[in-house]
């Protein structure tokens, strides 16, 4: 499970923030997952639940979704990423490395591969709450 590696990263990052803020218990961690990487929230949640210990023992994990917007650098067109338009192999490649999108997706207006991943790329730690 690729999500497992990302869950480990989320916990390592949240632990660092907790230490910086002298939190002894983390009550809630809010994570945002961008549509481009197609991370499955139930799998991410399961991985987090299997790994949580110590200061995260009783933490609640909120996983929010974000749409992914791509913006063409040539014609300025902005469009929303939709993995349902891709075949399984392409979809999986972008799941593992979202930048692989540049090898498969083109601007629907001018066909340029030179676009910016404007939002909703991957996994982000949005908020952490706890008790000092």
């Amino acid at each position: 499970m690729h999500e497992w590696a990302l869950a480990e990263a989320v916990l390592a990052s949240a632990r660092q923030i907790a230490e910086q803020n002298q939190l002894k218990i983390v009550t809630e961690v809010t994570i945002r997952v961008g549509a481009l990487q197609q991370v499955e929230p139930p799998i991410l949640r399961f991985a987090l639940s299997q790994m949580k210990e110590g200061i995260f023992k009783n933490s609640k994990f909120r996983i929010l979704r974000a749409k992914s917007t791509l913006k063409c650098r040539i014609c300025g067109n902005t469009w929303e990423f939709n993995h349902k338009k891709l075949d399984k192999t392409t979809s999986e490649a972008i799941h593992f490395i979202p930048e692989a999108a540049h090898s498969y997706i083109k601007c629907p207006k001018c066909s340029s591969p030179d676009f910016e991943i404007a939002s909703g790329r991957g996994v982000w730690l949005e908020d952490i709450k706890g008790v000092q």
């Binding site: 590696a5 990302l6 480990e8 990263a9 989320v10 390592a12 990052s13 949240a14 632990r15 660092q16 923030i17 945002r32 991957g122 996994v123 982000w124 730690l125 949005e126």
Partner: peptide
């Protein structure tokens, strides 16, 4: 918003 990936490298 924080990129969690850096912490695990």
């Amino acid at each position: 918003m924080l990129d969690p990936r850096i912490s695990i490298i």
